[in-house]
Design a protein around this nucleic acid. Structure first.
Lengths: 200, 200
DNA sequence: TCATTAATTGACCCGTCAATCAATTTTGCC
DNA sequence: GGCAAAATTGATTGACGGGTCAATTAATGA
């Protein structure tokens, strides 16, 4: 039984690394199995088919992400610190390591045609949104909803850009950009009522 | 000779639609050719291989995007109006129509392993950035650079989210979000350091 | 020790698909 | 009409990859 868990873990890790290396979900199950030091048949034995293996890998990535966020929140106190923690967690090294980036990109593609992938993606969206809302509400009141939407999209967009720009992937800089946007949004709501958005 | 142009156009249109329908670059050249009302061989005759066909399709999408932006800018006057125009153009219907969304997602995946795709993507990034900078400089001065980076990422992130969320793809709402972010950024810079109007 | 079960292998099947190419049709031209 | 060049076909090839499965090996335990 613990043998099975080990195998599953190994295969999932191999899936992420292999996709990360080749950049595409078009890697073969054989390549993944080989990297896991296992025969191709075993991957099918444990996961059924290739898509299920990939989705298991994404579930692992999302679980790790959730763990990181929770850990960061645990060490923070007060709305602003907690928001910073969420932002930092979204650009933690673990999200750029291995093949997480490539996995995410392929995940987006798959989410268009796979109901399960779409479900998982929606889960991520909901989690991020509710994490932001929790600490944005006390700071921005009625504007919280709109700010949360913007921050979430900004996080995704920055992740995309930083991930796809070969040269220097400095995750810290991305987190700073989000913080700057958050500052601007908060200052703006305090300073003066935005005409188009909700009032604070 | 104009026959060739017609064929190329048809094949490119078919590529975008086919990818849009299936969601993946994993469509076969045969399917694309069939949709274009042409034999598979012809696609290879004109484009060489599948990747070249797809990149030609992306070049078309980017060219259309550039055209939209230029048209919108032509009808605008003053920095703020021009920024609004750029933002609107980025969420014009044409970017969501057909298979543009699916093409973009697969383009991101390909940009990881194809130099040409990466080059094209960088071109898009540069264009967007310089469009934003042109009219942000007079409005935000020294903050322009950072605001432009944030707006560009926000645009990408919102596009992703709106594209991947089946239910309500209201592009206008996305544009409003970007405008709200722009307002906040400008208000924030004004509040922070009440400054004289710009240099350019 | 040996029998039973679980884990694992890897050869194999079968469909698929990118790419080729010889053959055929169409076009353009005199 | 008739001829050369261009356009187009679609059958074919060769490789490849997902998934299966019968056979083999390891673990368990009495």
């Amino acid at each position: 039984m613990s043998k099975e868990l080990t195998r599953r873990r190994d295969l999932i890790a191999a899936t992420i690394r292999e996709i990360g290396e080749r950049g595409t979900l078009g890697v073969t199950v054989g390549q993944i199995a080989k990297r896991a030091g296992v025969s191709p048949g075993l991957a099918f034995h444990y996961f059924g088919d290739k898509e299920a293996l990939f989705l298991a890998a994404m579930r692992t990535i999302l679980r790790d992400y959730g763990r990181d966020v929770r850990a960061a929140l645990g060490a923070a106190s007060g709305p602003r610190q907690r928001l910073d923690a969420v932002i930092d967690a979204n650009f933690a090294d673990s999200h750029f390591r291995d093949g997480a980036v490539a996995a995410w990109l392929n995940f987006y593609v798959l989410a268009q045609s796979s109901g399960e992938a779409a479900r998982l993606l929606a889960l991520y969206h909901r989690r991020l949104h509710s994490n932001l809302m929790h600490d944005l509400r006390p700071l921005a009141g009625a504007s919280a909803e709109s700010i949360a939407r913007r921050l979430a999209a900004l996080i995704d967009g920055l992740y995309l850009r930083f991930a796809l720009t070969r040269h220097d992937v400095d995750a810290g800089a991305a987190a700073d950009e989000v913080r700057a946007a958050l500052d601007a949004a908060l200052v703006a709501t305090e300073c003066h009522e935005p005409r188009r958005a909700a009032r604070s």
